[in-house]
Amino acid sequence: MEQVIKSYEIPDSLPQGLLDRLRSREALLLLLLGLTVLINSLLSPYFLDIYNLADSTQNFSEKGIIVLSMALVIIGQEIDISVASIIALSGVLMGAAASFGCGTGTVVLVGLASGTLAGALNGLLVTRLDLPSIIVTIGTMSLYRGIAFIILGDRAYTSFPDGFQAIGQAYFFDDLVPSQFIVFVMLAAGVWYFLHHTVYGRRLFAIGNNPTGAKYSGIRVDNYRLGLLTLNGFMSGLAAIMLVSRIATARPNMAPGWELEIITMTILGGVSIFGGMGKMPGVILAVLLIGMVQFGMQLNNIPGVIMSIFTGALLVVSLVLPILLGKFFSGRK
């Protein structure tokens, strides 16, 4: 051993074999995605129809937008389960703004601003009062949805400016690709770059792996926490805009159980629930995978209750899987 290391010139990395690459979580997800497509196309003749397929992206893309920022939050050793409630609150506030006669621009602004503020409140509670984010967001999950109910009760806002409705109902590329998917893809590229190619992303991994060590390295850990939770609120507001403009309805009980699905996609994508580990390609593949599974279930008329059982089971499996196969899958590196 001692003789081997004669000089202290250290190589950048050890050569990585093809086998190591195949063992990655991304490879597993790609395999599962292929299987899902295969099974779905065997079960239903409508699955592989290009218009159906493209249209199906509408539903999961709204969740996917939040999954992107949720991945950052969880990598940073935090969590946010108030996202679906932020959608409800932002949606209702947008509906209220529209009912006061506000134009498209103002309604969009209300959606983004209310989401951002709700996220910032989460962040401030976590950083200023030093509270665990799980507790804070359990509280604000009830709080935000509760405010939405107070504003609207069991009614719904259904009138929105035409320009606003165009946002969520627009299709691009020969009326093929819905706007939700375009937004998701663009944001995914942005978050990918942020996480894996910027100084901030590197520091985020340091925080997620060892917040104390990061602090001792001169990183302003609390600023990152605040920023991440605020970003998550902003993305929830954006998802609310896409959702409300698509269905032209805002209710306090909308997006039910989305927080569960969003966290499931994030964890399934290989983000460690303990923080510090995760890759964007995996997260994006997990969004596509769950989206395709749900689309297939819809085509085969499987009721929503079953879907919710499936999502719950998938969350548990995606938490257990990395522990069971921890030695097999090599994680981030």
Partner: peptide, 24 residues
């Protein structure tokens, strides 16, 4: 930061200086 690499640890406190910007 024990779970991170040698390279990532050594550069952690000097990232901005090394990269001269935000891009790694």
């Amino acid at each position: 930061i024990l779970p991170m690499t040698v390279g990532e640890n050594i550069t952690l406190a000097s990232l901005s200086k090394i990269t001269g910007g935000l891009r790694l």
